[in-house]
Amino acid sequence: MQSRRPLGQRSSPDGLLDDVNKAIIEQLQQDGRRSYAAMATAVGLSEAAVRQRVQRLLDAGVMQIVAVTDPLRVGFHREAMIGVRVTGDSRIVAEAIATLPEVDYVVLTAGSFDIIAELVAENDDHLLELINSRIRAMSQVLATETFVYLRLVKQTYTWGVR
């Protein structure tokens, strides 16, 4: 079993990810609605100090606090991952794909695809429109491969922090 160091002993170069902030992040990963008071008790700080630390983490872009929905229950009946091969600067295409409101995840990759994007669509016609008229229509897109989701088996955001 790994021994834990006391809070505050490890920190990132900028000091933002010390053990207290990591503990706060872990608290919020377990329950994004956890109160500042409950987190304060868990990490040994005042409620005001926790509130300030959470705001700094949000402002720095280290984390977001959002509601994660089930797309099927909010009107999107098709989810897919799209592998995209491009010519030229893949960052430009990735940024363009990221502007599409149906796209919720875009990564630049190494391997057979330059970009992988996850999207949600209302139905198969909407998915076809997104792929053909919006993604494949981009001049730098050479090819796409679509992976349609049949069932989501696991989706979690509780991996903690290192």
Score class of each variant (00 low, 15 high):
1 M>Q: 10
3 S>K: 14
4 R>P: 00
6 P>N: 08
7 L>V: 05
11 S>Y: 06
12 S>P: 06
12 S>V: 07
14 D>F: 09
17 L>R: 02
19 D>C: 05
20 V>S: 07
22 K>W: 05
23 A>Q: 07
23 A>P: 02
24 I>S: 06
28 L>P: 01
28 L>S: 02
29 Q>H: 08
34 R>F: 00
36 Y>Q: 12
40 A>W: 13
41 T>E: 15
41 T>F: 06
42 A>W: 01
43 V>T: 04
46 S>V: 08
46 S>K: 13
46 S>M: 05
47 E>S: 03
49 A>C: 03
51 R>P: 02
52 Q>I: 15
53 R>K: 15
54 V>C: 01
56 R>D: 03
56 R>V: 05
59 D>A: 13
66 V>R: 15
66 V>M: 11
67 A>F: 10
68 V>S: 12
72 L>F: 14
77 H>K: 14
77 H>M: 11
82 I>Y: 01
85 R>L: 02
90 S>W: 00
91 R>I: 00
91 R>N: 09
91 R>Q: 09
91 R>D: 01
92 I>V: 13
92 I>M: 01
93 V>H: 00
94 A>H: 06
95 E>H: 10
102 E>Q: 15
103 V>I: 13
105 Y>T: 03
106 V>Q: 03
107 V>R: 12
109 T>Y: 01
110 A>H: 07
111 G>I: 08
117 A>F: 10
118 E>Q: 14
120 V>S: 12
121 A>V: 03
121 A>P: 04
121 A>I: 03
121 A>W: 00
125 D>W: 04
125 D>Y: 06
126 H>K: 10
126 H>Y: 07
126 H>S: 12
135 I>D: 01
137 A>Q: 02
141 V>K: 00
142 L>R: 15
142 L>P: 01
143 A>L: 02
145 E>D: 10
146 T>M: 10
149 Y>W: 06
150 L>Y: 06
153 V>H: 11
154 K>Y: 10
157 Y>G: 11
157 Y>N: 14
159 W>K: 15
